[in-house]
Simulated scan of single mutants.
Amino acid sequence: MHSSFRTPAWFYFALAFAITWVFWLFPILASHGILQLGQTAQLACLFAGSFGPFVSAFIAVYRDGGGPAVREFAGRSLRYRMGPMYFLAAMLLAPVAAGLSMVWLASHGGPPFAFGVALSHFPLLYVELFFFGGSVNEEFGWAYAIDRLGERQHLLRAAAVLGVIWGCWHIPLFFITGLTQSFLPFWAFLIFTIALRVVIVWGYASNRKSILVALLFHTASNFAFNLFAVVDRTPKHDERGFIGFGLIMLVIASWVALSARCYRQAPPDSVAAID
């Protein structure tokens, strides 16, 4: 099977991780008192590092096909035509899953069910998260990654592998005091990233590789963390809300994996062999 990729996959992943982890190293050192770094500088490093996948993807795409490839790749973020089912899933699946987890938690000794954001703040918060909360920073990179991983293996397996890689990409954040990941068990976070990535890839692959769909899914996921207190930052450190969130997403991802057309198709190598 002929490949349109000239950049080795390992180069993309190595570059994405290197850019991110180098920038994130400074807040880690500051968090543990090894380096003196102001709060603004730490946030700047965190924000710059989050663009590792984005920058690496465009470097790889340019190496693969020059300017035309870059324009085609960037243009996928404007592919707004998607089925109503995919749009609703992208906007609602993660928030509903988080809400169900918090309803369960409230009935099992947790805090009363409540929204953490006023309804009037929903639009602005969503826009902020879309552009500055990790969606744009990451999803161009993970779109390139799934194209590479899905080139020679079954798409479902590629999505699960990317979910693991995505989870591991966040590892430095677990060592920075006060960040969301520092309150979470890594195993549960990994379940969450695998499940969410399977769902995101379903939307992406089912809509002509629309990066916009992936951006919407990612933003809604981050929105859910703001909408509900699934991460307990109190001294009680109750992890059940997030674990429940992750498990509900896993159930959703399992259903998608079993029913989605894109995941029932034969692996690329099998198609090539038939041809």
Rank of each mutant, 00 (worst) to 15 (best):
N222E: 08
E239R: 11
L227Y: 03
A229F: 01
A273F: 10
L250H: 02
T234L: 10
F245G: 00
M249Y: 01
V231M: 08
E239N: 05
I252K: 01
T234F: 06
A229H: 09
R264N: 12
D232T: 10
A273Q: 12
S254T: 15
G246R: 01
I243C: 06
F228Y: 14
V251D: 05
D232M: 07
S270P: 01
L250S: 12
I252P: 00
I248N: 02
A257Y: 00
H237D: 09
T219A: 07
P235F: 06
V231D: 02
A253Y: 00
H237C: 04
P267K: 10
R261P: 05
F228S: 06
P268F: 10
H218A: 12
V271M: 12
F228K: 04
E239V: 08
D269T: 09
I243D: 02
S259T: 15
V271S: 05
P235Y: 05
L227M: 10
A266T: 10
D269Q: 13
F245M: 02
D232P: 04
A266D: 12
R264G: 14
H237S: 12
A224E: 06
A257N: 02
T234M: 11
H218N: 13
H218M: 12
L250T: 10
V251L: 15
R261N: 11
P268D: 08
T234H: 08
I243V: 15
L227R: 03
H237A: 15
F223P: 05
I243Q: 04
L227K: 05
S259A: 14
